[in-house]
Design a protein around this nucleic acid. Sequence first.
DNA 1: CCGGACGCCTGTCGGC
DNA 2: TGCCGACAGGCGTCCG
Length: 271
Amino acid sequence: MPELPEVETTRRGIAPHLIGHRVRTVQVHDRRLRWPVPAAISKQVPGQTIRALRRRGKYLLFELDHGHVIVHLGMSGSLRIATGDEPRRPYEHVVFVLDNGERLALRDPRRFGCVLWTDADPEQHRLLVGIGPEPLSRACSGDYLYRLSRGRKPAVKSFIMDARVIAGVGNIYASEALFRAGIHPARAAGRISRQRYQGLARAIKATLRDAIAAGGTTLRDFRGGDGRPGYFRAALKVYGRAECPCGRCGAPIRQRQIGQRSSFYCARCQH
DNA sequence: CCGGACGCCTGTCGGC
DNA sequence: TGCCGACAGGCGTCCG
């Protein structure tokens, strides 16, 4: 489900309900996520206060008094705030019960997400340590992408979706940013000029900023922490629009697999 | 070392 | 109507 804008929307929605509140208990109803939910979660977390909620790429980092809970929403995960008397919904595998009576519930039908615990620097966790710069940071520049891409044969779309290159760009926003930059998604990453990477870096940032401002993209069931859907779907130019006329030139939007992922582009506008 | 393919899961949708 | 295959917003791991 979630790419960076959806994770950021979730973070902003749930943070006000969590910061400064103490976790009373953690209910693990099914520990069989992408990685087993560690027993330390239900042992270490109760009694601790949530101090901050940060995002790194598509990961959410819950800072507690001592240690961090690391959450990834995978393909179908979502987080919501529930009141104390609301019944647990299907697939809500992990529930954090807070001292204010509210609960934070992780729903994840496909169980590709994870809930982990670390008492060390979360940025140094093995799942986070190798990931690239935040796309909205200055470090993610056209020059950076240009330099890193030299000699690389894979498609530029696969390149910008590689978390070691940039953190948080997924299948929707890769297609959208490449359309915005006028770059064909299948072009070899190593054969794109510095100038065009500068345009691509700008396009990635603008696309993600716009999507965050719209509350993310709801394709099926994504809800922000406030329960509202994201409105960026209406702003998608190519993703999910196979055969529809390109809004810029009118040619039909193409769909094909690139790196085993569905990709959408305009063959006339993108080269 | 790099790049591509494979699994992990379940729900939904379109076609026959 | 019902069944079955294809496909889905991610990503670590394995293999060549």
